[in-house]
Amino acid sequence: MTPAGRRNGNGRSEEDAALERARAAIDALPRRKDQLLPALQEAQHALGWVTREAIEHVHRHTRVPLSEIYATATAYSELRLEAPVPGRWHVCTGVSCDLAGAAALLEAAPERTARIDCQFLCALAPVVVDARERLFGRMTPEALRARLEAEAAAATPQPPVRRRARSGTRTRRRPS
């Protein structure tokens, strides 16, 4: 399995540094089986996802067999065993968000968004999650497009970054 990490220009060294951080965080945990999930979470925190190298390190540190680590890691919906798609946002499709227009949000930016299960922010539906796992509530298609555009503009070095108002938070009130 080849890790499909975040590689660009000098990406390899960036990735190595992240792996070093992950290893250090894992090494700081007690060498016990009950530290398996915390170790995997440290790996994901440092690397953005749980890479093969990280799993091998967790295996060496906790002495849990690789097959068991995979069985456990794949059981948790929040652990990522593949590199996240850069810039991919998620639209919550829980019942409240669905009622409040999640489908329209997915349609507003189909190539930049994917659905995700309940994010437990139901009182502020509909909810989206950005690529850095920040939550935004009471979202509208227009506000979502504006945020995605602003993010894309900020990601490219030029032209000058347009500062947009935080329009995503000023949205219509929900129907009663």
Binding site: D34, Q35, L40, Q41, T72, A75, Y76
Partner: peptide, 20 residues
């Protein structure tokens, strides 16, 4: 780390112990 089943009490025990 997610999963509806993880709200079940015996599942949490397994999770804390490092089991599936």
């Amino acid at each position: 780390a997610g999963g509806y089943v993880c709200g079940e009490e015996s599942v949490i025990m397994n999770s804390v112990e490092g089991e599936r």
